[in-house]
């Protein structure tokens, strides 16, 4: 990551080449993160672009106390949550219906996992991403999404169940 952070001084000065280097290094990771929150490709792309714009605009405030990757990652999560807070689906009550696994294929790769996560309802998917991947606590998730901690936990539980079933099924199919 050091070779990425060496472009930061030039990018702050407005050097287009330095900015392009940072964009090329960070945009794929940020776009993958946005895809976990937004299944729609255009929506994920828009959030990635807005995140990079915010990153360059606030790059002069970067203190170097953490890798720039995690710094821009936090920006991307906040950017996604700003939009998700407006979604009413994230406040939907606990859903008991069985999540279908018929569309899942036998492959157990990242793209498949991404599709599994994208198949979740918005609330489940958001809580799962924040808790399991971003490392948020339920209290932080509840504060960020404006829900209770109980709702955060229940939604995470449902997401985990569904994911476990999907993984077990894929393993059994492979076996």
């Amino acid at each position: 990551m050091d070779r990425i952070e060496r472009h930061i001084p030039g990018a702050i000065q407005g050097d287009a080449k330095a900015q392009k280097a940072l964009y090329d290094a960070l945009s794929p990771y940020i776009l993958g993160l946005c895809h976990r929150y937004f299944p729609q490709e255009d929506e994920a792309e828009d959030h990635m672009i807005q995140t990079m714009i915010t990153f360059f605009q606030k790059l002069h405030t970067y203190r170097g106390d953490a890798p720039v990757k995690y710094w821009v990652r936090r920006m991307a999560v906040n950017q996604c949550l700003m939009t998700l807070r407006k979604h009413s689906a994230i406040h939907q009550p606990f859903m008991n219906e069985e999540l279908g696994l018929d569309s899942l294929n036998q492959e157990h790769d990242t793209a498949h996992l991404l599709k599994l996560v994208q198949s979740l309802p918005t609330g489940f998917r958001t809580v799962f991403n924040l808790y399991a991947i971003e490392g948020f606590s339920h209290a932080e998730i509840a504060e960020s999404l404006g829900i209770s901690e109980g709702t955060s936990k229940s939604q995470l539980s449902r997401a985990r169940q569904w994911l476990q079933k999907a993984l077990v099924k894929s393993e059994s199919d492979q076996g």
Binding site: P28, Y29, A132
Partner: peptide, 11 residues
């Protein structure tokens, strides 16, 4: 989870 965390998609 680890795979999803390291996921990268070309814009």
């Amino acid at each position: 989870i680890r795979a999803l965390d390291e996921l990268q998609i070309q814009p």
